[in-house]
Design a protein around this nucleic acid. Structure first.
Length: 242
DNA sequence: CCCCAGGGAATTC
DNA sequence: GAATTCCATGGG
């Protein structure tokens, strides 16, 4: 199957990515916090790790991860990397702290909203009658959380096996010829779910991370088809004149 | 100077 | 539903 083949090509070339990238982890620069077990990935198991992933997922909306790292550092320096402190911080102060990540007025609101959600889920989780389940619909009901951010949170913070579709993913499989263009998010998502299989989240986790890396290395806006490792399966790569 | 980055909401048809 | 427009900084 073509989806599995693409994964194998990318994994054999780029290797294990160990997302979600967190300050202190491999591939992340300039941070001294503990991070998640570089090169020996274990999913985040505590609340602070989860909350940091959620924060990063919001901050990286249409924004380079480099800018997000700058802001995560600033948030930590201000002792704001807890939902309680983000809720308590004045909106304009929070906005100024996260300024380097762009869209800072919108994102300041979003961080307050997901912080409230996080605390509320945590509180409900302690009640016996509550099933303790974060759902996609719950996340989508929050202002500022769309499908990709919701799926990123489900996958990387809570380890639910969902496939995250971002603009890189669409670009790659569109050029490869797997979609025509115009397909919706959920429709594209289904393409990546292998039939008759029950893969661990590791597959979804690593696959998405590999697609992001591959889009940065070769499948850029101006693609570098000549030496692209996916050339053998790619319509654009095969048609490229080089 | 230009374009781009691990989207999403609001508006309009 | 689909197409536009706005949000905004830092890096190449």
């Amino acid at each position: 199957m073509i989806i599995k083949r693409i994964f194998n090509i990318l994994f054999d070339l780029y290797g294990y990515q160990g997302w979600w990238p967190v300050p202190g982890s491999a591939g992340s620069k300039g941070f001294d916090s503990a991070g998640y077990h570089p090169g020996n990935y274990e999913p985040p198991q505590n609340k602070s790790e989860r909350f940091e992933i959620i924060t990063g997922a919001v901050l990286t909306q249409n924004t380079s991860w480099n800018n997000v790292e700058i802001v995560l550092r600033r948030i930590k320096d201000e002792n704001l990397i807890t939902p309680q402190s983000i809720i308590q911080a004045p909106l304009d102060m929070l906005a100024s702290i996260i300024r380097p990540s762009g869209y800072y007025n919108q994102k300041a609101k979003k961080l307050k909203i997901v912080s409230e959600f996080f605390l509320n889920e945590d509180r409900l989780d302690k009640e016996a009658a509550y099933d303790g389940r974060i759902t996609r619909d719950k996340l989508l009901s929050l202002w500022g959380i769309g499908r990709e951010t919701a799926d990123s949170i489900l996958l990387y913070a809570y380890h639910f096996p969902v496939f995250v579709i971002d603009s890189y993913t669409v670009r790659i499989i569109s050029r490869a010829g797997l979609i025509k263009g115009g397909e919706g998010y959920d429709e594209i998502q289904r393409i990546f779910i292998p039939e008759n299989s029950n893969p661990a989240d590791r597959y979804y986790n690593e696959y998405h991370a590999l697609l992001v890396l591959h889009a940065k290395r070769f499948c850029r806006k101006e693609p570098l088809c000549r030496r692209c490792p996916l050339k053998v399966i790619c319509r654009m790569g095969n048609a490229a004149a080089d």
